[in-house]
Amino acid sequence: MTLEEVCDILEAEVVAGGNLCDIEIRTACGADLMSDVLAFSKSGAVLLTGLTNVHVIRTCEMVELAAICFVRGKRPPEETVRLAAADGLPLLMTGLPMFEACGRLYGRGLRGCSENGR
């Protein structure tokens, strides 16, 4: 599905990279621990996370994730938005908790990154 569809499904607000809404999202990953993102995510995935610090952006840069959606209504600090904009990484934010955000996307056919996928 496209990032725009993800945005609609999660009733999310685009915080950065609004021009990239037509990119294709292949899988999703929900985590607050960046090591797990590094270990288990696949490039091209959207990361759902409750953390908004700059390390989330750097982590995504390392594994080439397609986009980040902050959950639980957490608005990223300016520094995070700036770094994401510089990296060309789109940011969304939704008021939904992680559990429900995963549920909605999964229900619409998006799948997770399997453990073996690197």
Partner: peptide, 16 residues
């Protein structure tokens, strides 16, 4: 399962 997938399936079962 990864967290995303487990949460997805639980929602599918009506949990939440």
């Amino acid at each position: 399962l990864p967290a995303f997938e487990l949460a997805g399936r639980l929602c599918g079962l009506g949990v939440g």
